Simulated assay, not measured.
Amino acid sequence: MTEPASASPTPAQAAGRLLGAADIRRIAADAGISPTKKFGQNFVIDPGTVRRIVREAGVQPTDHVLEVGPGLGSLTLAILETGARMTAVEIDPPVAERLPRTVAEFMPDAADRLRVVNADALTLTPQSLPDFNGDDRFALVANLPYNVATPIVLTLLERFANLDTFLVMVQKEVADRLAAQPGTKIYGTPSVKLAWYGTAQTVGAIGRNVFWPAPNVDSALVLFRRHPAGAAPADRAGVSRETVFRLVDAAFGQRRKTLHAALKKIVPPEAYDRAGIDATRRGETLSIDEFVQLAAALEGARA
Rank of each mutant, 00 (worst) to 15 (best):
P70F: 06
W196V: 00
A261N: 15
E173T: 01
D112Y: 09
V117E: 01
A7Q: 14
P182G: 13
A231Q: 14
R208E: 03
K172M: 01
A301W: 10
A104I: 00
N133V: 00
S8R: 15
L154F: 03
G71N: 12
E242A: 12
A22Y: 10
S8C: 01
A149D: 08
R177F: 06
G207V: 05
N209S: 07
A303Q: 10
R85W: 04
L263T: 07
H227L: 01
V59G: 12
D136M: 07
L259N: 11
G207D: 10
F211M: 13
A262E: 10
A29W: 12
V141E: 05
T184K: 14
V116S: 06
M1D: 05
G300P: 03
G183Q: 06
L19C: 14
Q13T: 02
A234H: 15
K257Y: 07
F138C: 04
V174T: 09
A78F: 08
T150G: 08
A200W: 03
L178W: 03
F245Y: 15
N162E: 03
A303F: 03
P9Y: 14
P9G: 09
G300T: 01
T2E: 10
L114A: 09
V89C: 11
H64P: 00
T76K: 12
T36Y: 13
V116M: 09
N216R: 15
H260W: 12
G283E: 08
G16L: 11
I27W: 15
D92P: 05
A57E: 03
A96V: 06
I206F: 03
V244R: 15
V44C: 14
A250L: 15
T2M: 04
T102E: 08
T189M: 08
R98C: 02
F291C: 13
P182I: 04
A295P: 05
A296C: 05
R55W: 02
G238L: 05
A84T: 04
V116N: 08
A180D: 02
R113T: 07
P215A: 02
G183N: 08
Y272M: 06
P93G: 13
P228W: 13
S191H: 10
